[in-house]
Amino acid sequence: MLTEFGKIFVFLLVAVIFVIALVIVAWLIRPSRPTKEKLMTYECGENPEGSPWVKFNIRFYVVALIFLIFDVEVVLLIPWALVYRQFGLGGFMVGAIFLIMLGLGMAYEWRKGDLEWERAKIIPPVIKRPVFSSKETREAEPVKSKQLV
């Protein structure tokens, strides 16, 4: 007997063979008359300008990182969700503590601005007393900023 995952492999084979067969059938029927213009990359009828591998937003990378964290944690939670009821309230608390930590991490990311799509707002650390400060510089500062304005 085939195992259940063996059946899935047959599904995969069917899908791959189906696509390849259709493409081959189309290849037998269709014409093929390439010209230089046809083989040009499509850019609304203009000649392609510059490298196609444009710079993309760094946020895509950050989203992928956050996704990775969540995904791994969810994978850890699935076995827990299947069995926790056998252990009563204690079993639930184990998962709940983990979930709360996950929530805290999420709240931290949110506060740091990693969930905003626009450029994250930089929140500088608040230093109450400047390390190198004397009376003169502290008084000179407002004057300096006035000059700038």
């Binding site: 493409v23 290849w27 083989l39 040009m40 990359t41």
Partner: peptide, 23 residues
């Protein structure tokens, strides 16, 4: 109609990956 359409692989495309992607 789609069956008889010319299948264009542009000169700048990465041929192998381009053909694997729909599969």
């Amino acid at each position: 109609k789609l069956l008889q359409k010319e299948d264009i692989v542009a000169a700048a495309n990465d041929r192998t990956l381009f053909n694997i992607a729909p599969i």
